[in-house]
Design a binder for these strands. Sequence first.
RNA 1: GGAGCGGUAGUUAAGACGGUUAUAACGCCGGCCUGUCACGCCGGAGGCCGAGGGUUCGAGUCCCUUCCGCUCCGCCA
Length: 606
Amino acid sequence: MTDDSQRDLQEEHQQHVEPLGDFTRTHTCGELTTADLKKDVRLCGWVQFRRDHGGLIFVDLRDRAGLTQIVFIPEVAPEAHEKAHILRSEYVVAIEGYVRERPEGMANPNMVTGGIEIVVRSWKLLNTSKTPPFLIEDRTDPGENLRLEHRYLDLRRPRMTNSLMVRHKITQSVRRYLDEGGFIEVETPILTKSTPEGARDFLVPSRVNQGEFYALPQSPQLFKQLLMVGGLDRYFQVARCFRDEDLRADRQPEFTQIDIEMSFVDEEAVMRMAEGLMARVFKDVMGKELTLPFPRMTYDDAMSSYGVDKPDTRFDLRLKEVTDIVRGSEFRLFATAPLIKAMRVPGGESLSRKEIDDFTDYVKIFGAQGLAWIKIRADEWQSPIAKFLSEKERAGLVAALGLEVGDIVFFQAGAPDMVNAALGNLRVRLGEHLGLIPENTHNFLWVTDFPLFEYDADEKRWVACHHPFTQAQGDPEVLAKNPGSARARAYDMVLNGTEVGGGSIRIHNAEVQRRMFTALGFTPEDAESQFGFLMQALEQGAPPHGGIAFGLDRFVMLLLGLGSIRDVIAFPKTQKAGCLMTKAPSPVSPKQLRELGLALREKPKE
RNA sequence: GGAGCGGUAGUUAAGACGGUUAUAACGCCGGCCUGUCACGCCGGAGGCCGAGGGUUCGAGUCCCUUCCGCUCCGCCA
């Protein structure tokens, strides 16, 4: 059918549209059951399916709560039935009728409301709809571009509605817990000051102060610390944060943090509070009791055994350093690599050559040259590298890794970052591939004792691992004496191998904060101009304080078992950071630019 | 900045080594149908094969450029 004829049909139907008037709903489309028989009810919703039998007409009426079958019967309401022939998908209607049990054998056990139907006495057409570009149902999966272009239709799908409802339940649960714990919800500025550390800022030009810019906050970090100085004691915010970096399946340029800060606390107090928060949310939202406290692991142990700082502890593969064992090997890579690690995979001997090749391609993403492996068989070690290994080296590997017949061992040798990234990510991939990861399991873990700094080879200076407001463990003198060895009073909460939150005990002494900036390579002048307000505040009786922030979007995604953060955000951006529905970002008029004192840049000539 | 996957009716997809009229399902439109529930039956319409250029007698298919979506590396204190 052509677009025109559909428009004609819709225009014709538009003539039947009536105002809502004083019609009020008595129920949603998800709640009526055989307990409500004979009740007079009024429902509103969208036409999900129409099944027109010429005589009887069935319609599944949908709202966010669910589906209810309504039936138009010529003998009961001839006028209502006659008019019902115009109904089409996604038309909006208000119906009035009575609840009755479906005839013998006609109940639909797949629907909550499947035992009943509404016999329509009268109804109003509230609006027509063009044929939707995709079916509003969970079964079919339209392309991401279509869904995002017509997000308002995508949101009608139960899957998306459910995501947003779960998200709502989580934030409400969080608010209740924190409110009961004496936390005060405070909003902090969206137009704020650009700081050079950390992610790239989104900038907003100032009209009143031409040539100057606000930045959108990467997090409310400094404001929440200043609220502690302000005596607020316990603060939280469901805070929108902005980072102008490239997107991923779990990263959007604007996202939401549950941002929390507390005065007069140490790590233990913050972690206990955070565990209680998780327990509360799991109980409220999933009806599940969590075991407290969560296990803890140091950063060093995580990197050593798992290759990542956010281990997935739902399954038990471990990495093990074997540098000293195979260092003398005739395998040239082993003889020269600064770090050699191995991962024993019980039962992995059955992996095919093709599977191993795929894993080899996979680790190359992380910079690996290849992937060495040994299959432990009863008669021999099958491996491209076994011939380079002496008897002593083999015995060393057996002892160190606990090798048994039927295992496969993967090796990675080279720069430590690469070795850990390659094997650490391969570990997760293997866990999925071999079905080692139990379903419906939620493994929480604290990772602690992070390094305070890491060395940035490009900028030739130390940068803060967490952020520059984090206290060092022990003697603050370590900042100047040996920054590489300094540990942070920081902690990350990890759920099933994903970082869901992170925080620290902050520096509350101005002098210590100055020394931190010095260690980071700031001149006193730069530190003063960028963070002078913080240092001044710390000089005015700042209480010891610390906190934590949770990535709400990621958390919701994990609880729902979804693979994309976009599915828990009402109006997300595409990978190119655009909105397909509104077409943002977009050019602005020369007048708008002039008012901001910004010159229109000519497009470069081809 | 880099690597990979994808773009064919409204939608989801199939289209062997370049070959004659580009398929299917669902949706849509019309007709029939009083117990369906992703109703059924009959009929019908619907396509610049993302866009531009090239190779060729001939391109959805091969080559180049480009746009869009997705996944990942870098990046994300």
